[in-house]
């Protein structure tokens, strides 16, 4: 098993603490079936370096894991990675987590990917069309009566109050109706931001997000779009039973 990145430096009063959902993503991305899928798709000799983008990096545990273990997971270390988060503290934490994890690889004489940094932003709206090879999203998936507003550019820049911290945490879990309001916005952007040839996305859903309907909707986009559940966790009947779906295009 690959080591889990250390996040002991992260301030969990304002940044989502790695939990069952984060660990399900790590286990899934490093599972034999996903390694097979990813290597087949991305490790051909001389093929362009894949670009891996995580949306909502939080502590950075998932992105730093992918960056550090690129050779094992994708069959190549020459990958490009960057992260996006709506929370400035999460962006800084991710940079630190990636740095610690990469250093750990170097200590063991192992390779790591090329991390380009984190940017502060709302989902994918600043990505150039067609550039992403692998997109990973652990969304705010909890059904809630209200959605916290996306911060304005000047918010949460330096000092934050308890109320600000609560809002930042709410942004990491509150998903509105069916827990899908944020995820739906991200899904709609996938046909644009994912690479036409090689793009794929891993998205975590909980049972209340109605994953079967989500997958049907994606397949309904036509043009070879596929969506499949690639892993599950949690107790049966529990409201937070989790699963990860892989979304990709099979070109005719």
């Amino acid at each position: 098993m690959l080591p889990t990145p250390s996040t002991s430096h992260v301030d969990f009063e304002r940044i989502y603490e790695p939990a069952e959902d984060s660990y399900l993503l790590l286990d899934t991305l490093s599972s034999e079936t996903e390694k097979d899928f990813l290597r087949t798709r991305y490790s051909a000799a001389h093929s362009p370096s894949p670009l891996v983008v995580e949306v909502g990096t939080g502590s950075g545990v998932v992105l730093s894991f992918l960056n550090a273990h690129a050779q094992t997971i994708l069959g190549r270390a020459d990958i490009l990675t960057f992260g996006i988060d709506v929370n400035r503290f999460a962006c800084k934490a991710t940079e630190q987590t990636v740095s610690v994890t990469s250093q750990e690889q170097i200590t063991h004489d192992l390779s790591h990917g090329f991390y380009m940094g984190n940017i502060l932003g709302d989902l994918t709206n600043t990505l150039k069309a067609g550039v992403v090879d692998i997109l990973v999203f652990n969304p705010p998936y909890v059904p809630t009566a209200e959605l916290p507003g996306i911060p304005s550019p000047g918010e949460n820049t330096t000092e934050t109050s308890f109320a600000d911290d609560s809002k930042l945490l709410a942004l990491s879990y509150a998903g509105g109706v069916d827990g899908m309001e944020i995820t739906d916005r991200l899904l709609l952007s996938l046909p644009e931001v994912l690479s036409h040839q090689t793009g794929c996305a891993y998205i975590l859903l909980c049972a209340q997000n109605k994953p079967d309907k989500v997958k049907e909707r994606i397949k309904g986009w036509g043009s070879g779009w596929k969506a499949e559940t690639v892993s599950t966790s949690g107790k049966k009947g529990g409201w937070e039973k989790l699963q990860i779906i892989r979304i990709w295009r099979e070109n005719a």
């Binding site: 709506v86 400035r88 962006c91 800084k92 940079e95 940094g117 984190n118 940017i119 502060l120 932003g121 709302d122 709206n125 600043t126 996306i150 911060p151 304005s152 550019p153 918010e155 820049t157």
Partner: peptide, 17 residues
Amino acid sequence: YKIKEGIANFLLPNHLV
């Protein structure tokens, strides 16, 4: 879009969203 401490801020003010 301002860059501070190496982090570019792509959050938009309300009138541009």
